[in-house]
Design a protein around this nucleic acid. Structure first.
Lengths: 185, 185
DNA sequence: ACGGTATGCGGCAGACTGTCGCAGGTCGCA
DNA sequence: TGCGACCTGCGACAGTCTGCCGCATACCGT
């Protein structure tokens, strides 16, 4: 388990589809996975992904959940239909349980929240026997949880401060101040 | 979808297993589900649950994830083995993505984090066609999210204020004051 | 009896929040 | 071109909340 690259090298099929609408991140992730031995195809939208899947179904897939032109779940289904043995993992900006449940039900083998480093992705991709890793003891600080929630809604509101504040039922001024600061640990 | 009770009444088999180690909560949940037409069996531990499943496999199950005498996942498997068509939902004090993924992979149809009210549970239990909430985004207030997180950890720490504060990385005094107040809206 | 730990509570200085208000920017529409 | 509807950033101020210290009490295991 220490050397992921050799494990990847032993795979019969290293084809991997990476879908993310953030181009720099996508490229970086693609490069990192390539270095670890995969043969990635990069796409930035659901439609591109579907096309790619049709022309050559990948053995692995790393998909962003939320894109501009549709839901990442559609791609999960497409990949599963084209290739039932594919190992798919979902990626998303801020972890959300409901989303994770949907993703797994749709057929993803795992769900990671960004920022997830390439090693995490590879580990999830390779994890044959699902090892219930550690005691699921996750001590996120209360402020951190609050902050992430805010970020999520903020993103969802397309970085519109006023609307985010309205939805969050908090003062625009307060939101502004919070957004101006860095994430709490 | 508006009247859950009538929908429950139409079920061929209303048997339901409720497992939670917190007796008051279990009773309350059981009563609530009974009022909505289910026929619940209440148990407070994994071993009791396994026994119950063996003697009469339920059509539905609401299981707490973490109990003193073992992992709720074991019960998921037991139920699934005994009755593959059963609809199981997991409940947990502390919402955790890794756990949610595990639960769904084990065969649960949904995963809710406490506090989940009875209607939420029934909805999850009945939701035949899945993924009705494509917009999985709640306009929960930021403070509410924080508060729920705190409550969850607090419960997880067995109502130990000092330990909760330590884990949450916040001051015990502050936690005390927060717990003394009611939930924010 | 003693150290370790948990709990409730008073108090205080400093940080944060809720509110107002003001100024400037963008967009769509007569 | 001007108006109205929004959005954004920011200053100021009072009221609230938080971090931190201390003290007293109450269980435990040794």
């Amino acid at each position: 388990m220490t050397d992921l690259s050799t494990e990847v090298a032993a795979l019969p099929d290293k084809s991997l589809l990476v879908m993310d609408d953030d181009a720099p991140l996508r490229t970086r992730l693609g490069r990192a996975l390539e270095q670890r031995g995969f043969e990635p195809t990069l796409v930035g939208s659901v439609s591109e992904a579907i096309t790619a899947v049709k022309s050559s179904p990948p053995a692995f897939a790393v998909l962003d959940m939320r894109l501009d032109d549709g839901n990442g779940l559609r791609v999960v289904e497409a990949v599963r239909d084209a290739r039932p043995d594919a190992r798919i993992i979902m990626l998303t900006g801020y972890g959300n349980i409901a989303t994770a449940v949907q993703a797994v039900k749709a057929g993803a083998v795992d769900y990671l929240s960004k920022p997830a480093d390439a090693d995490d992705v590879v580990r999830a991709l390779l994890a044959r026997g699902d090892a219930p890793p550690p005691p699921p003891d996750n001590p996120m600080s209360a402020d951190r949880v609050r902050w992430e929630h805010i970020q999520r809604v903020y993103e969802l509101c397309n970085h519109n401060v006023s609307e985010t504040a309205r939805r969050l039922n908090m003062h625009r001024r307060t939101l502004q101040r919070i957004l101006a600061k860095r994430a709490p640990r």
